[in-house]
Simulated assay, not measured.
Amino acid sequence: MGGNGKVFTLAEVSAHNSPKDCWLVVEGRVYDVTKFLEDHPGGDDVLLSATGKDATDDFEDVGHSSTARALMDEFYVGDIDTATIPTSVKYTPPKQPHYNQDKTPEFIIKLLQFLVPLIILAVAVGVRFYTKSPSA
């Protein structure tokens, strides 16, 4: 198919996402892999799931052979406009309120965290004071 120097946006490539018309982006290059779907050793689902994004990481993670890389030249149709590929966004979990399993109000917990050690100290001093034998 040979590329003619055409540059595609990710939106243009993403429109080719069906078994009858499947394009992928790998290492900044656009490939029309429609004719290869049936022959792909990993199945067509793997290729179809890689449409609409930069599939370079998916491609590299599998560890394709040099033969597979050479075969890609046959399906090359152009390059991707890298400005149209969004940068990866780090996942941040949604903010959730503190979970209080026993439903005890927060101020009671803080109060007990303060008072319990004081009570233990007072009991220890009291026991020491009352058990001290008076010297006669």
Rank of each mutant, 00 (worst) to 15 (best):
P117A: 00
A11Y: 08
V116M: 09
S66M: 05
V89R: 15
A83V: 14
D45V: 10
R29M: 14
D57E: 13
F114V: 02
M1E: 04
N17Q: 08
H16I: 00
C22G: 01
N100K: 06
A68T: 12
K6S: 06
T34K: 15
E38K: 15
F107K: 11
L47A: 01
D102H: 09
G63E: 12
P19A: 15
T82D: 14
P19Y: 15
T131L: 01
T104H: 07
E12S: 08
T104A: 13
A15Y: 05
S65M: 02
T87Y: 07
G43D: 08
R29F: 09
D58Y: 00
A15H: 10
R69I: 12
V89W: 09
A122Y: 08
P93V: 07
N4E: 12
P86Y: 04
T67E: 15
P117Y: 06
L24E: 03
G5F: 10
A55N: 04
A122S: 13
L115W: 05
I108S: 02
D79R: 08
T84F: 03
T87L: 06
E60D: 13
L47W: 00
W23P: 07
K110I: 14
Q113A: 05
S65N: 13
G2H: 03
Y99N: 14
P105T: 09
K110E: 10
D45S: 07
D81P: 01
S49F: 07
S133E: 15
T34P: 09
W23E: 15
P134S: 04
S14T: 10
Y91D: 12
L71C: 01
P93F: 08
D45R: 04
F129E: 11
G5Q: 05
V25E: 13
D44L: 08
T131I: 01
G78K: 03
F8M: 11
L37R: 12
A136K: 05
E27P: 06
A136R: 06
D57A: 09
H40L: 13
V46P: 03
L112K: 02
N100E: 15
V7L: 03
L24Y: 02
M72F: 01
V33Y: 07
L24C: 03
D21C: 08
T67I: 13
P93L: 09
L118I: 14
G5N: 10
A136T: 02
D44F: 11
K6C: 09
V30K: 02
D61N: 14
V123S: 10
V33M: 08
F75G: 01
P93M: 07
Q101D: 10
G126C: 11
H16G: 00
G78T: 09
D45T: 07
V89E: 15
P117I: 00
G52I: 03
Y76T: 06
L10P: 01
D73W: 02
K20Q: 08
D57Y: 00
L112D: 01
K90A: 10
T9N: 03
R128K: 10
V77L: 04
Y31A: 12
V62I: 09
L115Y: 06
A15N: 10
V26S: 13
M1L: 03
D102S: 05
